[in-house]
Design a protein around this nucleic acid. Structure first.
Lengths: 228, 228
DNA sequence: CCCAACATGATTGTCGACATTTTTGTTGTC
DNA sequence: GACAACAAAAATGTCGACAATCATGTTGGG
């Protein structure tokens, strides 16, 4: 996901990917401290790499870095959560606008190929792959829109969405199945912008609706803010 | 601007600020190569600092980093330019929503203090200060909205807006005067969301309307892309 | 017994030197 | 004279060691 769906952009992105996955799989809880040395040991890379990765993760809102104190898995509040979903809908809509406006011949096959991977992972029950591909689908849409700006914006928002989902969802799991993605592809193939946007909004609202975005802030967050 | 309106977040932010100002003042043109050693010499800092700053600038869309090749002042295309202004309007609207919803007592005085600085710089004709404060006003609005997410999003968009303005504006200068900012403060004081959003949209459209966002892409950009 | 000042350990921040890659200039051959 | 292969120079990328800073545990005084 982090390296996009294309070639790797660097070794640091792999660290980002693995940390992001750990967060998505709830192995790393919000508020957890991320010691550089420790991460360097685990990933078998130099500490400089880890610092690089942590800086990237911070700009994507996944970790919070306190100067001279260390990095922590971020704990977005409910306000931020709402903003993230709000703007994600806007960005995804813009992406669909671009895709339905000028459609590329190679776009549909690539989307279907991705969808096939999703279905395969779904059948196997490979949770890690499901999470990775689920985010990757939306990122692929942005890439196919041809705008690097939309890609970078959406990657940021997807990262944040993932973290928010792990913090505020009440039910255990429910990763969005590939079926909604399939419907989206159909709408894009038909160049039906209105339908595509509707499907996308529904798709994203399904995720948001399962969250408990009341004012119940986590205890950990209060502790951290009190310390700062 | 880069360090926000508050305390400095680090020494690297100062480098970012100075490079951003150089771009805004058209001393650094889009496409210009930014050699690390050279920058380190100019700013009298270590090369590691420069690398850190360049990485931040890349995530803000001001520079493009090509692996093993170096950093260049970015050259956003017209599509990206339109997207940036599109989303900037959305984000600024969200900020105003927050501000007019729950208004803070200290907000208005801080805005007026900032406005006073703008007027002072305007009277003196201090172009550098005008640029810095002009972006800073919008960033201050975001900070007063209480959302760190909106702040980081808007900082990104303001950086990109600045670069786009230097690339595509036909007239020489026209930095938005402080008067439009004053009107905005009034609307916020009156908690008049609709009026505030209208003023903001006009304000941003004034900037966008002076741009020549036709398909005329710069020659340099084509060269770079051909090389990559 | 509690609090403050200090000393220690752990962790982050910084810098300079070295390795790798790219670019450019040169040379030799066709 | 043009092109290709090679060599030298310059720039970026990487790493390890040292310095600065913060958290913790200890000790001495009130």
């Amino acid at each position: 996901m982090y390296q996009g769906t294309e070639a790797a952009v660097g070794p640091a992105a792999e660290i980002c990917e693995r940390i992001w996955l750990s967060i998505a799989e709830r192995r790393l809880r919000p508020g957890t401290r991320l010691k550089e040395e420790q991460l360097a040991e685990v990933f078998e890379v130099s500490r400089a790499r880890v610092r690089q990765a942590l800086a990237m993760l911070e700009s994507d809102g996944l970790v919070t870095i306190l100067p001279n104190r260390g990095a922590f898995v971020a704990e977005p509040g409910v306000h931020e959560a709402r903003d993230v979903f709000h703007f994600r809908r806007q960005v995804e809509a813009r992406v669909l606008e671009r895709l339905t406006d000028s459609i590329d011949e190679t776009a549909i096959p690539r989307l279907e190929a991705h969808l096939a991977l999703e279905r395969e992972a779904d059948a196997k029950g490979d949770k890690t792959a499901i999470i990775r591909l689920s985010g990757g689908f939306h990122l692929l849409l942005a890439e196919l829109s041809g705008s690097t700006f939309l890609v970078s914006m959406l990657r940021d928002l997807i990262s944040r969405s993932t973290l928010i989902a792990t913090m505020y969802r009440r039910q255990v799991d429910h990763n969005c199945g590939p079926d909604e993605h399939a419907a989206l592809i159909e709408a894009i193939r038909a160049s039906d912008l209105a339908e595509a946007v509707r499907l996308m909004d529904d798709h994203l609202c399904h995720v948001e609706d399962e969250l408990d975005l009341t004012e119940a802030v986590s205890v950990l967050r209060d502790l951290r803010e009190a310390l700062v």
